[in-house]
Design a protein around this nucleic acid. Structure first.
Lengths: 213, 213
DNA sequence: GGGTGAGTATACAGATCGGTCTACTATGGG
DNA sequence: CCCATAGTAGACCGATCTGTATACTCACCC
């Protein structure tokens, strides 16, 4: 929503706006423990399947502390997703910065996703999973979810631009498709090494689109 | 799991095994009303977010009828997914049968998905969404979900075989990636006409893989 | 030294959850 | 006629849900 053009900034440096309209919560030690436990439980079991009592117990914190910090479960969900998003962007940017050519930077996104998923995401993309549970667009977490995907699409488009200025939008969308497909196939275990396969297909796609790269 | 080769059968005629180990429920009028209401509510709001009282009320049926037919909410979930799967396969087979060339049959899958989604799936693939909510592989619905995706992957592989016998497995996986990516991008509204775009990319992929088609 | 902020411990409220129960009705087939 | 089947109506169960309340401790800081 709103104008999604975030200045002209190089895509590697725009780790802001992940919290968008949802002001973050002061991260006291208790709040941090809650967020860590909630993040783990939400991801492993699903958001609706995890109650605040369980979160508080797993965090080693009382419910009062939990509600003093977050006010409501919905806000914990927002912080969970915004935090995941923030850490993913930082992780990704590190991969992007150590690549130079436009081509290798595109592939670096898939490398980052593959490594990120293999080290901590056996159940696939948190945003896709959360979107399946949060149907109401008015939910405060909805903007975080769609914001992350919009950011990724814009990133792919920006990365494609140096390679094919006229077809950047189109190429960006194709890369996005492969990337999302890889995440889902990986998360559902449809076949092994799905993200790596998506990377290969992206490589072929880029090669075909810009034979002079 | 197990040997996933289900005979040599032509992919267009294998609408069985959708209910696998989960024996279906006798479809009395009351059961049908429950399934209709549950299907709509589960898809629109998510499985965990919908209670049995609401399902019974929306179906215009008492809770006793609901439990007499299905026994447990989990079983309603199984029937919901198995029913969706069954109807999708029938829908898809109709598209496949009116296409002749291997190439157009591959594209027909994307055509079917596009039309199927546009007419009734604003929130994307039911199986992907259900997988996000059902974390436990021991859940009776889990097999239906993974079974459907395995069937789709096998279908793509079978459709790719006449075009590229040696690379059928590889090409099938690439097509699967694009297809899943299209479904997710469509369901999350990442960009417009995502499935149609996936179809175009699939077309390009097939053309590149088999220039002599 | 008094106040503020962050925390523990625990009880409680009201709603909703999945699921069971009894009592009754209507229908259709041997 | 009779009995099984499929249904309505509605009370009820224990558990769990999100969220609030009271009372107290501890650390820090002006």
């Amino acid at each position: 929503m709103s104008e999604h053009g975030q200045r002209r900034s190089d895509a590697t440096r725009a780790p802001d706006n992940s919290g968008q309209g949802s002001r973050r919560v002061p991260m006291t030690p208790g709040a941090r423990k809650v967020l860590e436990a909630a993040g783990r439980l939400f991801y492993e079991r699903g958001i609706h399947a995890v109650g605040v009592d369980l979160i508080a117990a797993e965090a080693g914190v009382t419910k009062k502390t939990l509600y003093d910090r977050f006010g409501a479960k919905d806000q914990i969900v927002v912080e969970y997703l915004a935090d995941r998003d923030e850490r993913w962007r930082a992780f990704l940017v590190a991969y992007l910065e150590r690549s130079r050519s436009p081509r290798s930077r595109i592939l670096a996104v898939f490398d980052a996703s593959r490594d990120w998923a293999e080290q901590s995401l056996p159940r696939g993309c948190s945003m896709i999973n959360a979107h399946a549970e949060i149907a109401d667009p008015a939910h405060p977490a909805y903007a975080v979810i769609t914001g992350q995907k919009a950011w990724m699409l814009e990133l792919f488009t920006d990365l494609a631009r140096p390679l094919a200025p006229r077809r950047a939008k189109s190429l960006g969308r194709s890369l996005m498709l492969l990337h999302e497909g890889g995440l889902v196939a990986y998360g559902m275990g449809i076949f092994p090494d799905a993200i790596e396969r998506a990377r290969q297909d992206a490589q072929a796609l880029v090669r075909a689109a810009v034979p002079s790269g």
